[in-house]
Amino acid sequence: MNAALPAQFAESASVEKSLPAHRLMCSADLGWRSLLARHYADPAEAEQFTTTPTRDLLVVTVTGGRYTIESRQGRTWARRHYRSGAIGVTAPGHSSTLRWRSLSHEPMRSLHLFLAAGLVEDTVEEFRAARLSSPVLPDALLLRDPLVEHLAHRILRAMEDKAPALYADSLAQALVVHLLYGPDAHPSRPAGPAVRGGGPGGGLGGGLGGKALRQVIDYMHDHLQEDIGLDELAAQVHISKFHLLRRFAEATGTTPHRYLTELRTTRAAALLATTDRSVLDIALECGYRSPGRFAAAFRRHHGMTPTDYRRLRADRSAGEMP
């Protein structure tokens, strides 16, 4: 699995060597570019250990069990009670000296999310460019935030489902933005409203203009078979991933991931109705690596399985014959 690890996460991957935990799952071989996710089974008790600092922002979410965790601060220890949904955040370059013990017989589980340094740095720059107050990277032994908890569980589900990079990178982007600009932040607002649609030369001033939007959508059409990520889409119009997410939503009312899924399932429906190619063959052409993921996406958009859709269309065509 480490052979497929993206180079930017090599430092964060080494943090595992200092953890008294057993890895259950890892996103290293999924092609995700903005985060490294690892799910661990934690021991009932951990003696004092010190984590390894990295350039990435680390978010740890408890997914099972209850325990008391302590963090050494100088000569004293700060104590917090953790249960499912509790969150700890370690800022880039920081390390922690920790110890813990279980408070129940329930197996202890935790999800570790390393948010890429490049993503965090780009997002900070976007805040500054928008004339928002300088964001402060969080560093907390215990954080309670329903949105962070929800995003963490969505990422865990995405790892279980082997979700594409576009979806995982979108979740990572949302998580970073929220941590920098969440309910506890009070930045000043930028002067003047954004202009929906932008100008004729690509329209990148306040929204994703017609020309730029067409470039992004054309790229999706031309690469349906591939695992398209936010990096590739943003590169087509020379803006950051943060700008792309925000401006694509302003222009279309949806996210790039949902738009791409709509294109893929629409294309699949056309192939099911007009060809006798196998469902697997159609799934691969439309960018799905497994029939299961394809069937789930198709059902969400068309209300039935690909096989049922093909049968329904065939029955309708037969009924229209003279």
Rank of each mutant, 00 (worst) to 15 (best):
M220D: 02
A41E: 08
R196M: 04
R154F: 01
H105R: 11
R289G: 14
G199Q: 11
S84F: 13
A78Y: 08
S104C: 02
H243R: 14
V177C: 04
A234Q: 04
A91H: 01
R246P: 01
G31P: 02
E320I: 02
R264W: 01
L208Y: 09
L30E: 06
T274Y: 13
C26W: 11
L5C: 12
S84D: 11
R131V: 09
L147M: 10
V124H: 07
L284D: 08
T123I: 05
G88W: 03
A116C: 08
A152K: 04
A318W: 12
L271G: 08
G229K: 10
K241V: 04
R277T: 04
H223E: 00
R293V: 00
L179T: 09
A7S: 12
R157C: 09
R131L: 09
D122T: 13
R144A: 07
A46W: 03
M1Y: 13
A295D: 15
R313N: 12
A152G: 15
A270R: 15
Y167A: 07
A129R: 06
A158I: 02
S18L: 09
A4Y: 15
A13R: 15
A268P: 02
H257F: 09
V120Q: 03
L5D: 01
E285M: 10
S104M: 03
P256T: 04
R299Q: 15
P190N: 07
E149N: 12
L171R: 08
Q215H: 13
V136A: 15
T51H: 06
R157W: 14
E149W: 15
R128F: 05
P107Y: 09
H302Y: 09
V176S: 08
T61P: 11
D308P: 02
W32I: 00
G292F: 04
V59K: 03
H178M: 07
T68N: 14
T266V: 11
R264L: 01
A4D: 15
L312R: 13
A165I: 03
G206C: 07
G182W: 06
R109N: 05
G206I: 06
L179N: 04
L30W: 03
M220E: 04
